[in-house]
Design a protein around this nucleic acid. Sequence first.
DNA 1: CAGCTGACGCCAT
DNA 2: TATGGCGCCAGCT
Length: 105
Amino acid sequence: MGDFFKRVHEIVKMIPPGAVMTYGQIAKIIGNPKASRAVGYALRSVPEGVELPWHRVVNAKGEISTRRTFQGDEDKLLQRILLESEGVIFQKSNRIDLKRYQMFF
DNA sequence: CAGCTGACGCCAT
DNA sequence: TATGGCGCCAGCT
């Protein structure tokens, strides 16, 4: 695993319960604003046993991004449940209000 | 070394 | 709002 992935993980670890950050936002913080897709790729490969709130990362529209794997839907549902358990409210559009939940440095 | 892929983002329509 | 198209980039093959 490269340095980029590690930095993504370090940042995600800092997101407190009930708050979220976006893929693009994390990419910018790392210093590579155009690597948003790679951020998602990094969350896909979280080491076993590593505690990391991956569910607190959503896309720029405030929605849970679509997985391309065979268990994608199940994974998205889990992410939503985890966020709701922390008090995050989803709108009818299946999005959350970023102005309210997004965390900034 | 040369593609390929995808938990993205942005802009045009 | 909702789509569609395209650029980007780290890792994998």
